[in-house]
Design a protein around this nucleic acid. Structure first.
Lengths: 194, 194
DNA sequence: TAGAGACTAGACAGATCTGTCTGGTATCGT
DNA sequence: ACGATACCAGACAGATCTGTCTAGTCTCTA
């Protein structure tokens, strides 16, 4: 609440600039292919600042993924606000994904992508697991509100659809998969209420 | 099993040994993380042989992916032979995936994994695209035989399920996603016939 | 038996990557 | 004014990676 620097545009901190640069490059090109030097160059930050802030590339990767998790959570919750009807809120998840996948920068799920690059274990799997658990939990809640007979089972179905739509949107352009998934979700929701 | 067949006990060629070593290592750990030296060591092959046979790591990667494509095609066609009923043959795709995903070595779709590691374009995308096209075509054919009203549309749904099941099986162990996908396919198949 | 082709072992070059370290500059609270 | 903090610029070390090259071994065949 304090501060309120209206006219003077504060320059983002080195940490913030590093995170946005890492986010753009890691997501667009992958983690292994993007070196530290590319990141600090884009961020306009000294290498020493990166290492005094994050300690290692691995920790920068963790921060990148945690940022992506927060982004996704925020985008979904905000995107679902516009829907009132519980049924529409379930399907709305695929609407949000569809909007996102329409962007030419869309490259699929950052957690799966990161996971595909390395051996299991480590920070990547931690953040990835927690992000998946959150998504599943969201679907369970939406399923309950929509009156599904077995919310957990229905949520498991929606997770499969969500993953499949995300993969399809990355691999086949233009991305039709999210719309297909939405239609499937509609059919399955009918079946889950009966 | 006796030593009585020396003529058939031929040692695999350098190319074959390289391909099996590359297949195991690339699939298990990813392409960037596995260096040439690891591959030639496991294959028991000289580095010069690798480069005289394949020319570059990129071409070895292409050969690895083409091998995976052939493997998958063969596994699916063979796995579907046991089913007679057209409906069972559609669902059988998910049975085959379920069996595969039960193995502890399962690490998801090799094409998506490879694609997640690099920038678009290049051999990876080529093989990946053709493999996805083949899968889609298989589903179209199965859908037609099963009597779907719109085989292409139904196949698009099945591809979403297949991708989603594959991702889920890689990210959440033990892998429940293929069974979930099979159940969803059953419901959707009913809807696609009506 | 001689030679061609397939293969092995490993040194080497050149690039690139992560991470460290030195040293200098700007800003801010007190 | 002054010290603390945050930051910048870039050299450097050490590891690792792809790809090349030399030189020698084995096997089959004409």
């Amino acid at each position: 609440m304090s501060a309120a620097s209206p006219s003077t545009a504060r320059k983002p901190s080195a940490r913030e600039r590093l995170l946005t640069a890492a986010d753009e490059l890691f997501y667009a090109e992958g983690i292994h292919t993007v070196g530290i030097d590319r990141i600090i160059e884009r961020a306009g930050v000294a290498k020493a600042s990166l290492y005094s802030t994050f300690g290692s590339k691995d920790e920068l990767v963790r921060a990148y993924l945690e940022g992506r998790h927060g982004l996704r959570r925020g985008r979904l919750l905000k995107g679902l606000e516009r829907f009132e009807d519980p049924r529409e809120r379930v399907l709305g998840v695929f609407d949000v994904l569809d909007e996102l996948a329409g962007s030419p920068d869309f490259r699929g799920c950052p957690f799966y992508n990161a996971s595909a690059e390395g051996v299991p274990g480590g920070p990547v799997q931690e953040v990835s697991d927690s992000s998946r658990a959150w998504t599943r939990g969201l679907f369970v809640e939406l399923a309950r509100e929509a009156g599904a007979k077995d919310p957990a089972a229905f949520a498991a179905q929606m997770v499969v659809l969500y993953d499949g739509a995300s993969v399809g949107a990355r691999m086949d352009r233009p991305a039709m998969a999210p719309k297909v998934a939405r239609a499937m979700a509609e059919t399955l929701l009918d079946a889950a209420l009966a």
